[in-house]
Write a protein that binds this DNA or RNA. Structure first.
Lengths: 238, 238
DNA sequence: GTCTATAGTCGGATAGAC
DNA sequence: GTCTATCCGACTATAGAC
């Protein structure tokens, strides 16, 4: 852990060796910012946990805000990479006029992948608190615009167009937007309210089987809701 | 606003006149704690906004934590008072074996009243950020246990028993608990993610008509889901 | 490129006058 | 019961040695 590649031979090809230290600081900072919030997480603690000295943060990120921004960028990059396959598939599907069944299936896949990312995968769980904070509108308004631009807007837009095509309504009516928020809110509840959930259920740890159970419940509800939307829209039209 | 009842005649009957100042400090502190969080909201700012001097907070609440606790108690008291009618009705209903239609109706009423409290009523909207913070598991673990004890547990318990009776399953299986969390999460999404919602919809303010629109969408979804649960449970049994 | 030492600021809490 | 003045600690950021 403290090893961190040989110190001798400080790389002469212009290729920054400090990238490794930089990444380690970011990975240390993300859970701390998530748990304590921007203000309460002290740079001293982050530096200590990352095994570097306080001024190193100034050196790599200019300021505490710079570090926070870097954390957000790190998360945004990995999330958008992980969601790319489903999002791409959904966008291709939206071009042609697919059956409701197919559209609903893709919507469920999308939520399922998001659930994996936010609840299941152990390597990404450390991001969850910071993302939850930002989504709740807390946080210093540094990261949220960035996250929106990088993947939240796209994700939300795809959901709206899917629901629009399922119901035959326009994708950008308040009606559709609100229904998408409510539908996806079911997953959000577990993501943001993870702490409440654990105590409510009497679970002490968050095992993978729990995560899979949650995912199945949420996807089941979403499928139910989407079919209901589809049917009610059809009877309205007919 | 700065009037605050005549100062002369400082009440001699042992009846604390300071109660009024105390209440004003709490009502000032709640939105500040909600917006900035426990650490970042400074006692100086709270005191200044409330029109008192910093040491007054020490005098009335002992410490910053004491003030936070007092804020939580203030909210808990009013929320449990406001929810009492529906909760009482639901609990009476759970004694007898009512029709699914009636049970679903009560569940919807319950969510509807909660939505009024969290989104619609102007006098209670200042509580929303602090409640959202606590529900997200952020906050200094001072208020959440208190809020749970005072109304969250009861509310959640009633929802679980309603769903249990609707589906004919037990109220305390993980199955039922998770479904209740997912169902209610739809309201939570608007409560906690209020900021995201406003920007997504392009709304600049949060008008009462918006709140009513959101409430109708959420209640509609919940009714759909509860009926689906009821039917699927019946076919399982039959 | 990484460290030690320190400056400057702001927070919560306390003491004592009125 | 309310105010002024002050203490002490913690934080971020900087300067300069190695």
């Amino acid at each position: 852990m403290m090893q961190a590649s040989p110190k001798r031979r400080p790389v002469d090809g212009g290729y920054a060796r400090g990238e490794e230290t930089r990444l380690r600081i970011i990975q240390t900072a993300i859970p701390l910012f998530g748990r304590l919030g921007f203000d309460s997480a002290s740079t001293r603690e982050i530096a200590a946990d990352a095994g570097v000295n306080p001024p190193a943060l100034q050196y790599y990120f200019d300021s505490k805000e710079g570090l926070y921004r870097a954390c957000a960028e790190h998360i945004a990059e990995h999330v958008s990479l992980a969601m790319e396959p489903v999002l791409g598939a959904a966008e291709r599907l939206l071009g042609q006029d697919a059956e409701a069944e197919v559209l609903i299936g893709v919507y469920c896949d999308l939520v399922s992948d998001l659930a994996d990312l936010l609840l299941c995968r152990p390597d990404t769980q450390s991001w969850s608190p910071l993302l939850a904070r930002e989504q709740a509108g807390l946080g210093p308004d540094i990261a949220y615009p960035l996250l929106r631009e990088r993947f939240i807007d796209r994700l939300h837009g795809v959901c709206c167009r899917l629901l629009g095509q399922i119901t035959g309504r326009s994708a950008d009516t308040p009606q559709t937007l609100l229904r998408v928020m409510a539908i996806n809110g079911q997953l959000l509840a577990f993501h943001i309210g993870r702490g409440s959930m654990l105590t409510c259920l009497g679970w002490t740890e968050f095992a993978p089987e729990h995560a899979r159970f949650i995912k199945s419940v949420v996807v089941d509800h979403i499928r139910t809701l989407l079919w209901a939307e589809h049917r009610s829209a059809k009877t309205d039209a007919g």
